[in-house]
Write a protein that binds this DNA or RNA. Structure first.
Lengths: 340, 340
DNA sequence: TCGGCACCTGGGAGCGCTCCCAGACTCGTT
DNA sequence: AACGAGTCTGGGAGCGCTCCCAGGTGCCGA
């Protein structure tokens, strides 16, 4: 409103660069956009002029004229407050940024509540961004589907529970959990429980199903399941529940490190030795896994790679590349420490 | 490049809204920008037309014509990889976003390495954003000063070590540490050490100085100082160092919860009972503080509030508000749990 | 009765780019 | 020698807004 914001932007325009380089606006534009049909001489002159003048193109004008936003949105669904402190989100963000660096694409961060969903769809399908990356933590979210229907290129991180046509990238939660289960069986555990995530999250169900498969393979029962939310206290409550149902538990696969912290606390409180009495395997391999007491054996997922891959997929879509895989699962790996 | 990106943006234009509402472009623009001198009748008609047509204004055009970017940048200096997983950053981001919600201001995320600093200054001072929020973890960063010199409105999170004129918001690290020190003194501790942060970070020095003041007040020596980096392993190494220098330590103020995790590990390993033999006070009040064994007494700083306040300051600058405070310190509070 | 001031409205110009078309020049080919 | 294809260049139009100016209305006091 005021003078600060109201003064004309400083810096040279395309026109000035053209004059300095002794060429036309068009040629400068071609150089900037790395288009063919520019002579080496002209290209060098333009580059030199850009350097001399310290020219930086006006993104707004490019977007307006070029009908391309040169930006993608990272949309975090659900209550942003919780999500942002999630190491999962942080890792994805890191990966997205890493993949974007060097490309002339800006990252716009958006958070959505239920009620402003219509605004968000309007904004995102209004051409302000070229594509959308979405981290959808509760899988029922209708937003990805709506955006896809509106023709917005979108890649979702974490398998969505609804919307078949939507491209997603996820860690291979099923096989990660299966590997954990097999490891517990192989190390001689005979009464193996699991603390699973919420039923309405794909990540929760995939890990539960992997564990179930592992139990089935070994001919062991898969009755010891406690669902919980991804918090330490949730994990603690679930652990107490399981121990009260079956005191003879000798192993537990916890579907998230963060819940495993609570489970460890309960096991300590009940004077169960880890891993001697009860083996504990987590999932995620957060930093807290290695600093836990005892250091937690866990299934590692590479969330940064997840973010990179999502971005790579989206940029591929935008460039109109052919033969992109519909969706991707990234491998997980068991990290064996002291707790199992 | 391809059809997806190349098709004209869908949706109505300002012109269509004007036609539907039976008014001129100018009037619609006035309504959208909440300018005075629009009749109630015209305003209602425009609002209705916007709703009917699902109009969403083109940000690029607004930016270009209005010479205002309607966006601010959150710049994360130093290697982005480390910073992004930092709960501090996550909290700030949350606060920034909370404060921005409802305003028509987009948040653009940028990360800088040393070498692309020139690009970043160019971009940020080129008018692509109206202002800059910066989280500067190592205080010597010249970037804030350069941006301020270039006339870019900027607010820094965390006191910068260089650049006097720059507006910053920080937690009151000095008084937080002072309070922690006084508490340890008041609970009868007689040989109090500290694990301090790096010397080149204001946050590290402010907390150290607060602790020193507390020791001085009580007439206790302040010789037991070990500097370290903000990691669990760094904290562990510092704790070992302190114990080897003075086995009689009965309390330690650790300048970050994350380092306190390492310190606890070492104390456990040496069979020191906490808090009986050694009291431990942390700083930050991260989630890990409450899940630690024993739950950590720590100095709480409200990083989300920090983000909110930074944003509030920057928006105030942009609106040309008078009498804004030059810089702000946010209060901290001691959270007493079991470790001290 | 008439100016003057608030209030309200419309249209033209232009923000700084990209796109497209027209044209010039260089080749190799018929 | 004449043609076309490939290479390179410049200028005009226009992206969708905001800003500014010119003008309309109604109401007040002189």
């Amino acid at each position: 409103m005021t003078d600060v914001a109201r003064n004309r932007r400083p810096g040279p325009r395309l026109e000035e660069v053209a004059r300095a380089a002794g060429v036309s606006r068009s040629t400068v534009s071609r150089v900037i956009n790395e288009e063919p049909y520019v002579s080496a001489k002209a290209r060098d002159a333009v580059h030199q002029a850009i350097l001399d003048l310290g020219y930086s193109p006006n993104q707004a004008a490019r977007t307006l004229a070029g009908n391309r936003a040169n930006a993608i949105a990272l949309v975090v669904s659900e209550q942003g407050s919780r999500v942002l402190s999630d190491p999962f989100f942080a890792g994805v963000l890191r990966g997205v940024h890493a993949e974007l660096s060097g490309r002339r694409v800006q990252l716009v961060l958006m958070m959505t509540q239920q009620d402003d969903e219509k605004d968000v769809v309007g904004y995102l399908s209004g051409g302000h961004v070229d594509g959308v990356l979405m981290v959808s933590l509760h899988g029922q979210d209708p937003l990805p589907l709506k955006l896809a229907d509106a023709g917005v290129p979108i890649v979702v991180g974490g398998r969505p529970l609804v919307g078949d046509g939507i491209q997603y990238v996820d860690s291979d939660n099923f096989n990660g959990a299966l590997e954990a289960a097999r490891y517990l069986v192989a190390t001689g555990r005979r009464r193996i429980a699991t603390i699973a995530g919420p039923r309405d999250m794909a990540v929760g169900m995939d890990r539960l199903n992997g564990w179930r498969r592992g139990m089935a393979e070994a001919g062991q029962p898969s009755d010891l399941v406690a669902h919980s939310v991804f918090t330490p206290d949730g994990g603690a409550a679930a652990m107490e529940d399981l121990l009260s149902r079956e005191p003879e538990i000798d192993a537990v696969f916890v579907a998230a490190d963060i819940m495993a912290m609570g489970a460890l606390r309960v096991l300590h409180a009940q004077n169960r030795r880890i891993p001697r009495d009860v083996a504990v395997v987590g999932f995620d391999d957060l930093m807290i896994a290695s600093t836990a007491l005892p250091p937690l054996t866990t299934v590692r997922q590479d969330v940064e790679q997840l973010g990179r891959t999502m971005t790579w997929c989206l940029l591929g879509q935008l460039d109109g590349e052919e033969g992109l895989p519909p969706s991707l699962l990234l491998p997980t790996s068991l990290v064996i420490r002291a707790s199992a």
